[in-house]
Design a protein around this nucleic acid. Structure first.
Lengths: 346, 346
DNA sequence: TTGAAAGCGCTAACAC
DNA sequence: GTGTTAGCGCTTTCAA
C-alpha cells in the first residue's frame, strides 16, 4: 500500500541534473514548443535514463483533469463470471482507452448494491463510467445519471432509460437467428433464455417477429426459462425436455447456454443438427472449434468498445451522447445445418 | 477527458456548510477519534447528502501513497483474448483488491513491447504490478524487477526468474492428468501443447514423469505442438491425426485446446472417451456442461488471486515476497471415463 | 527562451 | 476538540 517513499526521482531532480528549473523540465517533457530543441532532448534523455515519468496524480491534480475511466462489471453470477464474451469486450475497451492515453480502472460490483456504483467518479478516481451488465438496474442507473455521473452502459435501450446505451441490435439478432432456423426447415422453434433482462427481452421479441412473419406459432410451451450462464441453463433445459415438448429448433440467449443445450441433447441421443437445430448468441471463439460448430449471432465487440469509449468521452465533453445500436450478424455453422431433417418428438 | 471543472463539491464546501475548518472535515471523514462524535456524524451526513467523497488523487498526493495496483494482461493472441480462465482470475483479483480498499488499473499490452510495462508504476499511477501472461518475457521481467518495480507474476517459476511467481503446480498438474489417463487404461498418451512456454514446459515434465513411473514410452510421435487457444489447436491436432499415429489418450495444455481436440475426434467418428480419453487443464465452467463433460485439472483461481495480491502488498512493504506454487486438483469427468475401452488405430 | 511563484485538493504537524 | 499553516509533485500564469 505504501510505495517506497523518498527515493523516487521527481521533476526537481531532473531539473537539478539538467541545470534548469522544474518549469523547464515540465515544458520540455510535455513538448512545449518554446523550449529549445537541444534542451528538450537533453532533458528527455535524462528522464529516460532515470526511468522518470511525470507523476500522473500530481499532474492531474494541478491540471484538474483525470484521464481515467472506470469500468464497472455488474454480474449476477459473481462466483464464476467466466463468460468469454465479457473478457473480449473488456479487452477491446482497454485498448480503446490505451490508444487515447487513458487509464482503465476496473471494479466488480454486486448488482444488489447500486449505491456504491458512483464511488469511482465521486472520489475523482475516474472521470466517467462504463457499465457492463445492465441487469435490472435501469432505475438505479437513471438516478446516477440524473445526478450527473457521466456514464455509458453496455446493454439494451429501454423506453425509460435516460442514459446512453451501446448494445447490439438484440431484436434483430433474435430475428436473424430465428429466421435462419425457419429457413433451415424448423417449424417448432423454442426460445431458451430470460425475460426480465432487457437484452433478453428484445431478443425474444425478434424471435417472435420471425415466427409471426413465417406464420408459425409461438406457444408458451416453447419458452424455456434459463439464464445466460451454463450453470443453470443445462439443468433448466433438461427439465423442459423431460416435459416432452415437440420441437425441432432452439434459439439460445447465449453461446454458453447453447452449448449446454447441445450437450444435453447429445447426451439423450438427440442429434444436432439432424433432429434439432441450435443457434446461440455472442460468437465466442470456442464455438468455431467444437463439434458441431456452433451457429450464432455475432456482436461486434471491437466496434462496441469504440462506441462505448467515444460516447463516454463525448458525454464528458459536451454533456450528451447518443445511444448506439450495433448491427448483428448471423454466423451459420454446423449446429443449424440442413441435413436429414426430421421432426423430433419425445 | 476533462471533467466538469468548478462545480464539484470539495472539502472546503463541506467545511463552510458545517461551520468548521477543512481539517475538521478531513479528520471527521477519516474517523479520527479526536473529533466529537456529534460533529463527526453531522459532517458525515452532510457529505453523504452531497455525494461528497474525498478526492482520492489529492489525498494520495499528500499522503504519498497510492492504493492502486496495476494489472498487466500480456497476451499472444490480442485479437481474441477470450480464455475464460483469465477472466475468472481477473475477477478474483478485482475482488481481493476491493476488499482491501485498493483500486485496480487494467492494461493490456502486446508482449513484444516490454519497455512500456513499467509505465503504470513509473508514473505513480500504481504502486505495484500483477502480470498475467508471463510468456517468454522472463528476462524482461527480471530486468524490471531488478530496477525495483514491485511486481508479482502469474505463471511458472523458472530457474532464473528473480521475481516472485504465483502459479499452480504445473508439474503436478501434468502428472495428475497423465496418471489418471494411465489409471483409466490408456497406454499411448499424447501431449498436446507448447514447449517454450514456462507453464507448458512444466506440465509436460509432469506428463513425462507419470509415463516413466508407469513404464510407458514417451515417443516424440506423441507430442503435438499446439498453442493454448482453440484457434491453432484444432488445426494442429488435425494435422497430427492425419499422420496416423496410434494413441488412446491425450493430455491437453488447456481446456480450450482439449475441447477443440474432442471436436476434431468426434468429427472423424473417433469416440471420446471410448476410443480416446482426453484431459484438459484450467477447469473452465463450460467444461462441466458439455458433452462429454470434460475431465480437467483445476487451478484454484481465488486462492491464486489472494496470493498474488498478498504477495505484492508484502513485496511493497517489506521488499520481498515468496513465490507460491498452488496445488492442483484432478476433476475426472466423462471425457476420460472408462467404458468399452479399445485401442484406437488410424 | 526560461525562471519564480502560486495553487490544484487534501492531510498532518503544531498550535491553542 | 479544533484551527492554522505548510507542503505533497506538478503546471502555468506572469515577468524577465
Amino acid at each position: 500500500m505504501k510505495q517506497s517513499p523518498n527515493t523516487r526521482t521527481q521533476m526537481a531532480d531532473i531539473a537539478r541534473l539538467a541545470g534548469v528549473s522544474a518549469s523547464t523540465v515540465s515544458r520540455a517533457l510535455s513538448g512545449h514548443p518554446a523550449i529549445a530543441l537541444a534542451t528538450r532532448e537533453r532533458i528527455a534523455e535524462l528522464a529516460r535514463s532515470l526511468n522518470y515519468q511525470v507523476n500522473a496524480g500530481a499532474a492531474n491534480l494541478r491540471k484538474r483533469t483525470n484521464p481515467t475511466i472506470g469500468v464497472l462489471l455488474l454480474n449476477d453470477n459473481m462466483q464464476a463470471m467466466s463468460d468469454p464474451f465479457i473478457l473480449k469486450l473488456l479487452g477491446h475497451i482497454a485498448d480503446e482507452l490505451d490508444q487515447r492515453g487513458m487509464a482503465l480502472l476496473l471494479r466488480r460490483a454486486a448488482p444488489n448494491d447500486p449505491s456504491s456504483m458512483a464511488a469511482m467518479v465521486d472520489s475523482g478516481q475516474a472521470g466517467g463510467l462504463i457499465v457492463i451488465g445492465q441487469n435490472s438496474l435501469n432505475q438505479d442507473i437513471n438516478a446516477l445519471f440524473a445526478r450527473g455521473i457521466p456514464m455509458v452502459v453496455w446493454g439494451a435501450k429501454l423506453p425509460d432509460s435516460a442514459y446512453p446505451v451501446v448494445g447490439s441490435d438484440n431484436e434483430q439478432g433474435g430475428y436473424l437467428a430465428t429466421r435462419h432456423l425457419i429457413e433451415q426447415g424448423c417449424e417448432r422453434i423454442a426460445y431458451m433464455g430470460e425475460y426480465e433482462h432487457a437484452e433478453a427481452h428484445l431478443r425474444h421479441q425478434g424471435y417472435l417477429r420471425a415466427l409471426q412473419e413465417a406464420g408459425l406459432s409461438s406457444s408458451a410451451h416453447l419458452h424455456i426459462h434459463a439464464s445466460f450462464d451454463s450453470r443453470g441453463a443445462r439443468a433448466r433445459f433438461a427439465d423442459w425436455l423431460q416435459a416432452g415438448h415437440r420441437f425441432d429448433g432452439v434459439f439460445c440467449i447465449s453461446d454458453v447456454a447453447a452449448l449446454s443445450a447441445i450437450a444435453e441433447l447429445t447426451d439423450r441421443g438427440i442429434q444436432v443438427p439432424e433432429a434439432v437445430k441450435v443457434v446461440g448468441y455472442d460468437n465466442i471463439e470456442l464455438g468455431a472449434y467444437l463439434h458441431p460448430t456452433l451457429s450464432t449471432i455475432d456482436q461486434p465487440t471491437q466496434l462496441a468498445a469504440q462506441h462505448l469509449v467515444e460516447g463516454l468521452l463525448q458525454l464528458m465533453q459536451t454533456g450528451q451522447a447518443l445511444s448506439q445500436r450495433l448491427p448483428t450478424r448471423l454466423i451459420a455453422r454446423e449446429s443449424s445445418a440442413t441435413n436429414k431433417l426430421q421432426l423430433f418428438a419425445m
